[in-house]
Computed example of a mutant assay.
Amino acid sequence: MEAAAVAATKPLIKVVAICGSVREGSYNRGLIRCAIEISKSSMSGVEIENVDISKLPLLNTDLEGKGTFPPVVEAFRQKIREADSILFASPEYNYSVSAPLKNALDWASRPPNVWADKAAAIISASGGSGGSRSQYHLRQIGVFLDLHFINKPEFFLNAFQPPAKFDENNNLIDAQTKENLKKVLLSLQAFTLRLQGR
């Protein structure tokens, strides 16, 4: 069987991509755009949907009814519920994850926890260490949420170190970084299928 035919038989996995920055010009948002492009142009069996978390209200259990959530929260939870795996693009704020991302994590963890038993990967574009501290903190949070993160490859991008990694529209342009991002997606795909026994 030809390689193209083999690739076409791969089961489809649905990946929800979440950017921890709500800023339109975020480099992490640029990473997600590139991941979506890679999944469409040079991978098979992976469908990535960018899910916006900017409209989620601050977590307040007073907003919950008996087993119900505000419509915007319920819509977000449903996206997570339907996903096979999660791709987090996590900037680093004060050695940790961003407030919008933590808020999204908390809303989707309200009973029933819709993160449970899903595969996940983290990518980061930041200064300094490229977001490594935020990633390690997110992994700690993931223990309680019962998320299963891939361990390798890790992806930390110092967005400000030359040569330029992004263009004037914050789109990823560095070829090696794109290749590193593709390796993360391939690892997430393989791990998701293994976790699901497919």
Rank of each mutant, 00 (worst) to 15 (best):
P111C: 06
E179Y: 02
A190D: 12
S44E: 09
E179K: 10
Q196N: 15
P57I: 00
S132W: 00
N28D: 04
A17E: 04
L185K: 01
I123V: 15
M43L: 14
W107L: 05
A89E: 08
N103K: 00
I141Y: 12
I32G: 04
L31I: 09
S54D: 12
A119C: 14
N151H: 13
D52N: 08
L145Q: 03
L193S: 03
S42L: 10
Y136W: 13
T177H: 06
F156L: 03
S124E: 08
Y95L: 15
L56S: 04
S26N: 07
D84V: 09
F88A: 01
A7R: 14
P100D: 10
Y93G: 00
L185H: 01
E37C: 05
P91H: 13
G30N: 05
I13T: 02
N50G: 05
W115C: 03
Y95Q: 13
A119E: 11
G45W: 03
G128V: 05
G20P: 01
A75S: 14
R110D: 02
F69K: 05
D146Q: 15
A121T: 01
V46H: 06
H148M: 10
A120C: 08
G197T: 04
L185S: 06
E82T: 14
P162T: 08
A89H: 03
P11R: 06
G30A: 04
R81P: 09
Q161Y: 12
L172Y: 02
I123Y: 09
T177Y: 00
N158L: 00
E24Q: 15
H137N: 14
A175K: 15
V15L: 10
N158V: 01
E49S: 14
L59Y: 09
G67T: 00
N28G: 03
S21Q: 02
L87R: 08
Q135H: 09
G127E: 10
P11V: 06
I122R: 00
E154P: 09
E2F: 09
V184Y: 11
L59D: 02
F166N: 03
F156Q: 08
L59P: 08
N180L: 08
F156W: 15
K10S: 11
R81W: 03
E64W: 00
E49V: 09
N151K: 14
S96N: 12
A5K: 15
S39E: 11
S44C: 09
G131K: 04
N169C: 12
N50A: 14
F149M: 06
L193P: 04
P11Y: 07
K182Q: 10
S98I: 07
A116T: 11
F144R: 13
V184C: 12
P153K: 04
A7G: 12
R23A: 11
A116C: 10
M1W: 06
Q78R: 14
L63A: 05
R77L: 06
S98A: 13
